[in-house]
Nucleic acid binder design. Structure first.
Lengths: 171, 171
DNA sequence: TTCCGCATGTAATGGGTTACATGATTAG
DNA sequence: CTAATCATGTAACCCATTACATGCGGAA
């Protein structure tokens, strides 16, 4: 249940509407924590009910701008310092376990696909990295660290997939 | 909805009961695709209903041994070749985005914790790798590839966390 | 005036976690 | 006989996805 904390985190910087937040989820957070529109509006309502955020301004078309409250910030800090990140599932890896039921050629295709996808992501992240003007702000520092993680992960995945294909034995 | 495919995959090798499969999920698949007992029994019942597996033997204490059927194997192959792995969420990374709301010391603590955890996992996987007698069987080949992924991932995470801590600026 | 983007919401369904509930077998 | 292990199942709740539904405001 980290969506609520993702929302709190995004509201630290400045107030925003559900629509604004959705765009952030579809762009910068897309690779880290995807969220759907439905889920997001529902969660915002719950957060407002529990007082962690408030509607600070109403705009045209029923737009509601939410602002983080003190209890909301406290909850975000509590989550960061007192809870452990949960274990992640890896769909990619699960499939690897069972590649033996395919022909070697099909297994190679799968690994090649993974290599290509990782290479694509890697290039995309590199472009993003180059495009951003990193300054010294906190957000910049931690955004940079997160992006570096993504790049290292993509590189690792690509190299692993390329190595893995050499391990597959022709039948 | 990959749990069903994980179950099909495990049943490729040999028939097994829910209880047997649960142990596999708690040990070898624990880091790839965790599953709870509840979920597992429910899914086995559904798989049997749809004919992808059958109860091939009944043992003491109501034990039911399930065997993969031909349609089950076909479904497993279809999943492997025709569906794309889904994007993963990263709780660890999500937190990094928001480390700016903590004190630099708290942020360092978080990164150190991540480094330590990755190092621990790395050691554990190394031990596992050394302990297993890898032969030429398919399962061995792909199990080995999966384990290699785990080790590379853990190494990457450790190195990243150690690098990241050097990027945090004291206030 | 017409279309695009802004903006929010609900309902149905499925997957996942926790907790509850029960009981048979076997090893010591 | 007693405790550990084997073994299965149900119920409640929450989170996530998909689809449906609606309507205003601004720009061309």
């Amino acid at each position: 249940m980290s969506l609520r904390h993702a929302l709190l985190g995004l509201l630290v910087e400045h107030p925003a509407s559900g629509y604004d937040l959705l765009k952030t989820f579809d762009t910068s957070l897309a690779n880290v924590w995807p969220a759907t529109q439905s889920q997001l509006y529902g969660e915002l309502a719950k957060l407002a009910d529990s007082g962690l955020i408030v509607v600070s301004e109403q705009g045209p078309r029923g737009r509601k701008e939410y602002t983080l409250t003190d209890p909301g910030l406290a909850e975000l800090r509590r989550w960061l310092t007192e809870t452990e990140p949960q274990r992640t599932r890896s769909d990619v890896l699960l499939r690897v376990f069972f590649l033996g039921v395919l022909t070697p050629q099909q297994a190679l295709d799968y690994l090649d696909g993974q290599a290509a996808q990782a290479a694509g992501l890697r290039a995309e992240l590199k472009k993003l990295d180059d495009a951003i003007d990193w300054d010294d702000a906190d957000l910049s520092v931690y955004g940079r660290i997160a992006l570096e993680y993504g790049q290292r992960l993509a590189a690792m995945q690509q190299e692993w997939a390329e190595w893995a294909r050499t391990q597959v034995k022709p039948r």
